[in-house]
């Protein structure tokens, strides 16, 4: 199970990084969201995997590690705030600049053809 879990984290990281490297804002937002899933899972796993051991006192004889859970809980909410902020920035940039490129236009030859303004 541990191996499968790690593969999931790895796949999420890979997908997130790939999306972050795109040139348009929406895929980047998706990538950030994906990456925050990966990071949350990663941090959560630092308390090791345990089944049927929720940290409710008296509910089970053994308990999972509560500390990473508490950290990840706030991380999820903060991650949402960050995603929201980047989304709003993307909208603002689109409204002010007329396009959704994340590069200053003409600065880099990575874009094969210039995006037509809508």
């Amino acid at each position: 199970m541990e191996l499968l879990y790690s593969i999931c984290v790895g796949v999420l990281v890979a997908c997130g990084v790939f999306l972050i490297l795109r040139a348009r804002s929406f895929p980047i937002v998706l990538g950030l969201t994906m990456l925050s899933y990966a990071v949350n899972l990663f941090l959560f796993a630092s308390g090791r995997l345990s089944i049927n051991q929720a940290v409710i006192l008296g509910a089970s004889p053994q308990h999972a590690d509560p500390l990473p859970q508490a950290l990840v809980l706030t991380a999820i909410v903060i991650g949402f705030a960050m995603t929201a902020f980047s989304v709003i920035l993307a909208i603002r940039a689109r409204a002010d600049l007329g396009n959704d490129f994340v590069n200053v236009q003409g600065s880099n030859s990575t874009v094969k053809k210039a995006g037509s303004k809508k």
Partner: peptide, 26 residues
């Protein structure tokens, strides 16, 4: 390739961590 490399590295670290015993302050 960069993305896969990242996935491999982070996944491996994750695997290395969760298969080792835990010494926690919890």
């Amino acid at each position: 390739s960069i993305a896969s490399a990242c996935g491999v590295v982070i996944g491996s670290i994750c695997y290395a961590i969760i298969t080792r015993p835990l010494d926690s302050i919890s």
